[in-house]
Design a protein around this nucleic acid. Structure first.
Lengths: 153, 153
DNA sequence: CTGTTAGGCGCAAACGATTCGCAATAAGGA
DNA sequence: TCCTTATTGCGAATCGTTTGCGCCTAACAG
């Protein structure tokens, strides 16, 4: 399996330029803070808390409120997705461009909070069936897995 | 206290007496506040926020801190389960005794927050496979559905 | 029934995450 | 470069939840 520490840039990641282009496209200003935040999210490809993001900011010092506001805006623009692991703080992850594998879930270690991205998903047919049975529309789901990672067992 | 002969609705619900017995069994005191809280949870068979619980308390006035502490204790004892719908406030639901309706999920309306209990679950084999693939142990999941209920469409 | 006592309770203050108001600042276009 | 206005920083405000601390009372022995 992929090593844990060394960053594995084998996955196509959008360049910062592309990201800021998407910002402009959303008629938002490309500010230092936003570039810095995007840069952090782009390097760590996993959901980060606001505090983690701030600590990862190199050089650019940035107010928490600004990070919150930026993440809110980036989420609205669809550049970022918000996850909730139930520990009281939201996490934010950069989601790839265009049609790609947007939707995914996570497997979180209960002890060390190591996070693994999971591609398996709740069966679509079953979800549709649930929606139909209850007369609901536009049904989505929130799904996360928790357990003990190999190192913590 | 010897109530409960009025027409208690449908689904088999543990009596308050049974519940308090379980409290005693956990060597916890059976106080007025706890009985009141259990009573509320027993009537509304859905995850309730702390604020909802307090508003549903009839007669017994009860401090928020007490409700939080009681729910924490009841959760530890396994009488209550905590759910998180990602709206910032935790919900608590009474879970039946022994073999009953333990594990289940919810379908929540995005507009009116109406909640439907869902019995369908993430396929166990798939979950095991995910655990195995990643070397995790004791894997569980958190799964909730969101959509628009019939009335809100 | 009464006294003892440790677990519970109410209240207020503390907390951590997130949001808001407002004046100062800096993108981006003219 | 100048101007307009989105954005930032800072402090204060919110919100849900937790905690410290005396007072109170359920549980139990006598």
């Amino acid at each position: 399996m992929g090593s844990a520490h060394s960053h594995v840039p084998d996955v196509p990641r959008e360049s910062l330029a592309d990201l800021t282009a998407r910002l402009r496209h959303g008629s938002r200003r490309v500010t230092g803070a936003r570039q810095a935040i995007l840069s952090v999210l782009r390097q760590e490809r996993r959901p980060l808390t606001v505090r983690e993001i701030r600590e990862d900011l190199t050089g650019t010092r940035c107010d928490l409120a600004t990070i919150y506001r930026s993440l809110g805006m980036l989420t609205e623009l669809g550049l970022v997705k918000r996850f909730d692991f139930g520990d009281g703080s939201a996490r934010f992850e950069l989601i790839g461009d265009g049609g790609g594998s947007h939707h995914h879930h996570h497997l979180v270690c209960n002890r060390c909070t190591r996070i693994v991205e999971i591609d398996e998903c709740f069966p679509e047919e079953l979800e549709n069936s649930i929606a139909r049975q209850n007369g609901f529309q536009a049904v989505t789901h929130r799904l996360e897995f928790f357990g003990l990672c190999p190192e913590c067992q």
